[in-house]
Design a protein around this nucleic acid. Structure first.
Length: 576
RNA sequence: GGGGCCGUGGUGUAGUGGUUAACACACCGGCCUGUCAAGCCGGAGAUCGCCGGUUCGAGUCCGGUCGGCCCCGCCA
């Protein structure tokens, strides 16, 4: 069978008035076909746009009559101006049309399970099952193209700044720390496994040891954890690492990269340097390590006033924080917020109402007039509203109020702003019931060594946060073997375990490892946040569902007994 | 692992224990030379996700199960 079609001269998105009179050939999908008897209008679509084709010749109409949406056709004809009353201002090509003098069918199409158009609502599972049709919708294509544009500009910027793009292995070593690994059984070595890389962290450090003092990669990362709207089992990180740098150098580079992206992709000038804030400050002002700084409503420490009240819970608490909200919240609304606060680990959520400059209701009866005045002043109350308060230990109290704040600001219209912030000085480890766990990962350089109280040890560790979303995190790394070993010891690894899991890294640190650091940014989150869409599957061509299934391919799927045998694997299914 | 919401012609929805499951779009046929999500006339199309239970009677109530979305856990 011969492939018989004319070469296309233009795309469906580029013809304008300046092309009038030109003879053109377009190839594309029929997005709509309007039959007026003696004249047919075809909207012809490709990824560049839609162009109206007019068919009025008898012999062509006999052919076109049998066509319908999503057939692929070839159209040759002359570009002509539309009659003034037929101009479509909603179409980029709306001033012209192509009068067909020859049309051919290139491919028929079954009636699709849903109409291929932006404004047609479709169940998500159906969209995923027929993702190749979903991807034909212009709005979905825009997301994928946006991603490609961002990727291109990332490469352009980093290449120009002396970075070398290096790929690191996908088949890597399993580590019980951190996220659950996807495992790949070894055929040649029965009972042994590769792990799919969760991130290129260790490899990029080894590249620094190797002397590639500026490395980057658009790295696929694979983590076997339950997905969320902002988390997929496989996703992409903009991973970079530099030698001989301080935190400030990393900030400057990344701010430059962000400014470049916003300027070239969105045409927006970002303000830089970005705001910097320590982890501690972020917690105390916003109750979270990823503050959304598009909104005010900061938390206030009211411990001295609250402790002086007659409210027993407050008197006994380490910390009492308050949040002043602009509206009068109903009993029911406060109860909902209290549920959120309790989930974050506090006993409850107290409230008082402010009306006409005075406090009433809720726990106000435990506060003397003087304390109430102090509260009004401390919270800088102007106008009516609701004061929310909670108490307990430092972290749960702040986190609880942070969760309440997040919930409340959801009610506000998000301003069209990009508020970046560097959150710095994260602790290296956190105390748990069983010992110490890394807050980020365990390869970061502490600012001060404190092996007596590791939980007090702050690191050269930072997150880049945009509009309340963690875009990525990074650090200056521990580039000396002794320090790295000490850190591993703190999280409970024996010498033997260190050797087994990270021996290759520790050894490399002994052969002239430069001071180095970097960052990894979530590409899908970054792209999504540029256009205010926090559903990252929208920026992945073939995403998984929230249970990790691939509905189109039907994965995970069965394998043959022969495959299993070759891999030395026996399946034991869970009992009912 | 846990919680919430959802599943009804191809698609999106309505249907709040009782007749023949309703509507819009899509689809099929017809008419029409200026439409653009064309219009008009006509038609076909559903075992109400699946299994079981309650009931004289279940799309509707109950239990289980499969699938989706959102959330908690988890995500160094």
């Amino acid at each position: 069978m011969s492939l018989c079609f004319k070469k296309r001269t233009h795309t469906c998105g580029e013809l304008r008035k300046s092309h009038i009179g030109r003879r053109v050939t377009l190839l594309g999908w029929i997005s709509s076909l309007r039959d007026h008897g003696g004249i047919f209008f075809i909207n012809l679509r490709d990824r560049y746009g839609v162009t109206q084709v007019v068919v009025d010749k008898r012999e062509l109409i006999d052919r076109v009559k049998r066509w319908r949406s999503e057939f692929i056709i070839e159209v040759t004809g002359e570009v002509r101006e539309r009659p003034p009353d037929a101009i479509n201002p909603n179409m980029a090509t709306g001033e012209i049309e192509v009068l067909a003098d020859d049309v051919h069918l290139l491919a028929e199409a079954k009636v699709p399970p849903f109409v291929i158009a932006d404004d047609v609502k479709v169940r998500p599972e159906l969209r995923l099952r027929y993702r190749y049709l979903d991807l034909r919708r212009p709005a979905v294509q825009r997301n994928i193209i946006l991603r490609a544009t961002v990727v291109r500009e990332i490469r352009r910027y980093l290449d120009e700044h002396g970075f070398i793009e290096i790929e690191t292995p996908i088949l890597a070593k399993s580590t019980p720390e951190g996220a659950r690994d996807f495992l790949v059984p070894s055929r040649n070595f029965p009972g042994k496994f590769y792990a799919l890389a969760q991130s290129p962290q260790l490899y990029k450090q080894l590249l620094m040891v190797a002397g590639f003092d500026r490395y980057y990669q658009l790295a696929k990362c694979l983590r076997d954890e339950d997905p969320r709207k902002d988390r997929q089992p496989e996703f992409t990180q903009v991973d970079l690492e530099m030698s001989f740098v301080t935190e400030e150098d990393v900030f400057e580079l990344v701010e430059g990269l962000m400014s470049h992206l916003w300027k070239t992709v969105l045409g927006v000038e970002l303000e830089s340097p970005f705001v910097r804030m320590t982890y501690r400050e972020a917690m105390e002002r916003f109750g979270t390590d990823k503050p959304d700084m598009r909104f005010g409503y900061e938390l206030r420490d009211v411990t001295p006033i609250a402790k002086a009240s007659d409210f027993r819970i407050f008197k006994q608490a380490d910390k009492v924080v308050a949040l002043l909200w602009q509206d009068e919240l109903s009993r029911k609304e406060i109860e909902e917020l209290e549920t959120i606060a309790k989930e974050a680990g506090v006993g409850g959520l107290a409230f008082m109402r402010v009306k006409d400059g005075t406090i009433a209701g809720g726990v106000s009866k435990y506060f003397s007039e003087e304390l109430q005045k102090g509260l009004l002043k401390l919270l800088d109350v102007r106008g009516d509203g609701t004061i929310l308060m909670t108490a307990g230990d430092w972290k749960p109290t702040l986190e609880a109020m942070g969760a309440v704040r997040s919930k409340l600001i959801e009610r506000l219209d998000p301003p069209n702003e990009y508020k970046f912030v560097w959150v710095t000085d994260f602790p290296i480890v956190e105390k748990t019931d069983t010992g110490y766990e890394p807050v980020h990962h365990i390869f970061s350089m502490p600012k001060r060594l404190d092996f007596e109280h590791p939980e007090n040890m702050v690191g050269h560790v930072y997150d880049l946060v945009l509009n309340g979303v963690e875009l990525g995190s990074g650090s200056i790394r521990a580039h000396k073997r002794e320090i790295q070993e000490k850190l591993l010891e703190i999280i409970g690894l024996t010498k033997q375990q260190m050797e087994e899991r990270f021996g290759f890294l520790l050894e490399a640190l002994e052969y002239g490892a430069p001071p180095h650091g970097g960052i990894a940014l979530g590409l899908e989150r970054l792209v999504g946040e540029m256009v205010g869409d926090r559903h990252i599957p929208n920026f992945i061509a073939f995403p998984k569902t929230t249970t990790g299934l691939g509905l189109m391919e039907g994965i995970p799927g069965e394998v043959t007994p022969e495959q299993l045998q070759e891999l030395h694997i026996k399946i034991e299914k869970p009992k009912q």
